[in-house]
């Protein structure tokens, strides 16, 4: 059984829009438009999409905050809204924009309170807290009231709070929003560590694709409430023809463009001194060997495919009908 199952999940919001000076009109916004998805135990899922795609709405339906308009969701075999409190025991949630902690209490007290709320035995609680303190560097501000914490400090607190009851599934909605480089790395490192252990399922939404590259093997892209890609990051690259590039700097300008099998020439730059090849079936060594016969190599570098670029293309592309443009399963 999958840890998370969604079938035909939909959410519609009725909103009133101002038309003209006084009149208002009801309009239906389909935030999530029929999502079918399964997530297995231990998977690290990157759930991305442009602003307003319906990511947060999906997560709220999976955590029992929002009632779906149609379709079904199961998390840990439970129906999120109907069995909300039971589900809450088994999942951890961080909504990056919204605090779960007690505003006026020191972080330490919040954690202690959560121990009671989630009914975690004191020993277990202490072990896990110690680990989080260590990995997330909490010690400095453990006794500061939450309202006085900086964003990054608070977010580390939120993560800890979501993990103290060792949830089976962790839902993170933009956990790295507004964090500086160091905090981001701390959070990512922590989550990577969690993923390595292999028994926590992670669903992560973010706009920082580096989070995804670092943490997630599977990537689901949604747009206008529909899945437009589901697969590994590599699958996404191959779908959009983004490949690794070899950039070769030559001493001399070649009279005619070189033909290397499995590595078509992409661009010629710097008055013919710089050649850019895409790596298809050839290896870097083969390209180097092929070029060495033609001219003296001054420098060679390899450019990884740019995920930002690929995703931007995906976001800009019109949504396919049915939204089920699924490529390569992981």
């Amino acid at each position: 059984m999958s840890v998370i199952e969604m079938s035909g999940l939909r959410k519609e919001f009725t909103v009133r829009v101002k038309v003209g000076r006084l009149r208002r009109e009801k309009r239906v916004v389909t935030a999530v438009d029929g999502i079918d998805l399964r997530v297995e135990r231990g998977e690290m899922l990157g759930y991305i999409g442009p602003n307003g795609a319906g990511k947060s709405t999906t997560l709220k339906m999976l955590t029992g905050v929002l009632m779906p308009s149609a379709g079904e969701a199961r998390v840990c075999g439970l129906r999120p809204v109907a069995e909300r409190t039971r589900l809450a025991m088994r999942i951890g949630v961080v909504f990056g924009q919204r605090s779960q902690l007690w505003w006026d209490l020191p972080l330490r007290d919040s954690f202690d309170l959560l121990r009671h709320v989630y009914r975690v035995p004191a020993g277990e609680h202490a072990t896990r807290l110690a680990r989080c303190r260590d990995l997330l560097d909490l010690d400095e501000f453990l006794d500061t009231p939450v309202r006085q914490l900086s964003l990054g400090q608070r977010m580390r607190g939120e993560l800890t709070a979501a993990l103290l009851h060792s949830p089976e599934v962790l839902f993170l909605d933009e956990p790295t929003i507004g964090l500086d480089v160091v905090s981001k790395q701390a959070v990512r490192g922590f989550l990577a560590e969690l993923g390595r252990a292999g028994d926590t399922t992670l669903v992560l939404t973010t706009h920082d694709l580096a989070d995804i590259e670092r943490l997630c093997h599977r990537l689901v892209v949604i747009d206008h409430g529909r899945v437009v890609h589901d697969g590994s990051i590599a699958a996404l690259h191959s779908r959009y023809g983004s490949r690794r590039m070899v950039v070769a700097e030559l001493d001399a300008v070649l009279s005619e463009p070189p033909e290397l099998p499995g590595a078509p020439l992409q661009r010629v730059e710097a008055d013919g001194h710089r050649l850019v090849f895409a790596l298809e079936s050839a290896t870097v060594a083969e390209v180097v060997a092929g070029l060495a016969g033609l001219a003296t190599l001054r420098d060679i570098s390899i450019v990884e495919p740019d995920i930002e670029e690929v995703v931007a293309r995906l976001y800009r592309a019109p949504v396919e009908v049915g939204g089920a443009a699924v490529t390569g399963a992981p």
Partner: peptide, 13 residues
């Protein structure tokens, strides 16, 4: 304000 979200994700009524 949506603060109610935080109430709903806790394992208590």
């Amino acid at each position: 304000t949506g603060l109610f979200d935080a109430v709903l994700v806790r394992p208590l009524a």
